[in-house]
Design a protein around this nucleic acid. Structure first.
Lengths: 158, 158
DNA sequence: ATAATTGCAAAGGATTTGCACGAGT
DNA sequence: ACTCGTGCAAATCCTTTGCAATTAT
């Protein structure tokens, strides 16, 4: 369902992400380890909102010895460096998504199954700017979430 | 920081909230207990985002014997009935806010001073419906928050 | 060599739950 | 009476942390 959006830009984005991470780590004197490379590579290459557990599962397909503390620590590093964003959707887990380098997107959340879809709407963005301006605010960011029942759950209920 | 926006409607809102809760509880066969009345009364009368602990503290000023499980359970009830909304701000705690009866208003939040203003925009609402529909979702509610710097803070920085 | 990183397991916090007692209908 | 709700403590779940061993620089 999601994916999409980026075509050729994908590779460039990945490189950009890794370059930023590299710069951040250099600046902080952090080391590049096999585990970090594996975790970040998988994370950067995945769309959507990953929980630590989901990410760890994929990571362990490549290296079963990776501990979950490492994934937590790596995601913290990514969050601190601005390359990942932490989100909470109301089930007790933290989910992370790759910080999109520019584009803005928002979320549709199914109240029944928890499925999360993304949407993007320039008209809404534009209106947000207008609203902020009308209130004298300089907009920095926003959060826009729509909660409802997805088609599958809706059908299942019928 | 910010207060209000509601004029005489305050009292009416409280009554409306309690009426809805009452209806919900009747319909579910739930009982009105002293603890529930105390918790909901305090919760409904408080602005902002309360953690369970903060709420419990106030509750215990009235009745020190109330256990925190009761507050958790009562807030769950309020959330289920749509009268409270749960929020997460990234420190491990859940916070709750009284659900605005008027579904058509959202928030502008100043990142410097915390001032909160409300806005309402029918065009955005309409677009939300359209977006949800395009994704096959039946919309139940939404959250739309704009974060930025308000005029006063902006001026102060200049 | 030196300091950062890992993996494990233990510790921490927040939230939930089982159960016996108490209270609302 | 019959359930539902409460309070307590124990249990759970997610996340963080201490530490000895390992690894990058």
């Amino acid at each position: 369902m999601r994916r999409a959006a980026n075509k050729e830009s994908s590779k460039t984005d990945l490189e950009e992400l890794q370059a930023r991470l590299s710069a951040y780590m250099d600046q902080k004197g952090l080391r590049s380890t096999a585990q970090r490379r594996l975790v970040t590579e998988i994370f950067f290459g995945t769309e959507g909102h990953l929980s630590i557990e989901e990410l760890l599962e994929v990571v362990r397909q490549q290296d079963p010895k990776v501990g979950y503390a490492t994934v937590y620590r790596t995601l913290k590093l990514l969050t601190d460096s601005g390359l990942a964003q932490e989100r909470h959707f109301g089930d007790g887990v933290s989910r992370y998504e790759v910080a999109h380098l520019d584009e803005h997107h928002d979320h549709l959340i199914c109240l029944r199954c928890g499925r999360i879809e993304e949407f993007e709407n320039d008209d809404v963005e534009e209106m947000q700017d207008r609203i902020a301006k009308a209130h004298g605010f300089v907009l920095e960011r926003h959060r826009h979430e729509l909660y409802g029942v997805c088609r599958a759950c809706h059908d299942a209920e019928a």
